[in-house]
Simulated assay, not measured.
Amino acid sequence: MASDPTAGGAPADMPVETPDSTLDIPAKPESAADWQRLVEQLQAEKADLQDKQLRALAEAQNVRRRAQQDVEKERKFGIERFARDVLSVADNLGRALSALPADLESVDPTVRNVVTGVQATERELLSVLERHGVTRIEALGKPFNAEFHQAMMEIEDPTVPSGTVVQELVPGYLIAGRLLRAAMVGVSKGGPRATPQANNEN
């Protein structure tokens, strides 16, 4: 009679347990030199992990800083296109006011009231723009600066230094200190040269 292979023991289909070869468990040190090597290995792994942690923290800090810079930039310059469009409204108000006669006393009182309203509207518009970081470039009487001014014409005027802005055709504006629109100006010629120091002024 054949003996039953499963009799008195484990069933035939039960897997035999073998050591897990995926675990990286170092062998138990047997000598002082082995212990020393194990300590050095663990210290090297610790230093490597610390270095990786510091790099990850630095990268996370850089990402956070870049995100903050992007938010700040968007806050400052996000309205740039809108502000540039609004400038045409300010230009039209300015043109309307510059077309008025110098002496408003001779004008009908009703027209004077309209003029006063337009002046108040222009002041309010410029105030709103300024509250949002849009400021007007002071150009008249300043030395020409290609960074902020666009020369449209030269005007013969020997009484002022050559290269001085003597006429402002269209005002220029900055947004948060950055150029939004250059001032279109007339520049003097024929006078003495402006000093290099004056040329650095905005």
Score class of each variant (00 low, 15 high):
residue 109 P to F: 10
residue 105 E to L: 09
residue 160 V to T: 11
residue 143 P to C: 09
residue 117 G to V: 01
residue 156 E to Y: 15
residue 118 V to S: 07
residue 151 A to V: 11
residue 107 V to W: 04
residue 136 R to H: 02
residue 138 E to C: 05
residue 103 D to A: 12
residue 153 M to Q: 15
residue 112 R to N: 11
residue 131 R to T: 05
residue 152 M to G: 15
residue 116 T to Y: 07
residue 137 I to V: 12
residue 165 V to Q: 00
residue 116 T to W: 05
residue 108 D to N: 15
residue 140 L to M: 14
residue 154 E to N: 08
residue 137 I to Q: 02
residue 109 P to I: 08
residue 131 R to P: 01
residue 124 E to Q: 11
residue 103 D to P: 13
residue 135 T to I: 09
residue 112 R to C: 10
residue 162 S to K: 07
residue 116 T to Q: 12
residue 106 S to Q: 15
residue 152 M to T: 12
residue 163 G to Q: 05
residue 129 L to W: 02
residue 134 V to S: 04
residue 161 P to K: 07
residue 157 D to S: 13
residue 128 V to Y: 05
residue 162 S to C: 06
residue 137 I to H: 03
residue 108 D to V: 10
residue 154 E to M: 06
residue 165 V to K: 00
residue 124 E to H: 10
residue 151 A to Y: 11
residue 128 V to G: 02
residue 144 F to N: 02
residue 113 N to F: 07
residue 112 R to G: 12
residue 118 V to D: 00
residue 163 G to A: 08
residue 113 N to I: 07
residue 124 E to R: 13
residue 141 G to K: 09
residue 142 K to Y: 06
residue 116 T to I: 06
residue 120 A to L: 10
residue 131 R to A: 09
residue 164 T to K: 04
residue 118 V to M: 10
residue 125 L to R: 01
residue 107 V to Q: 06
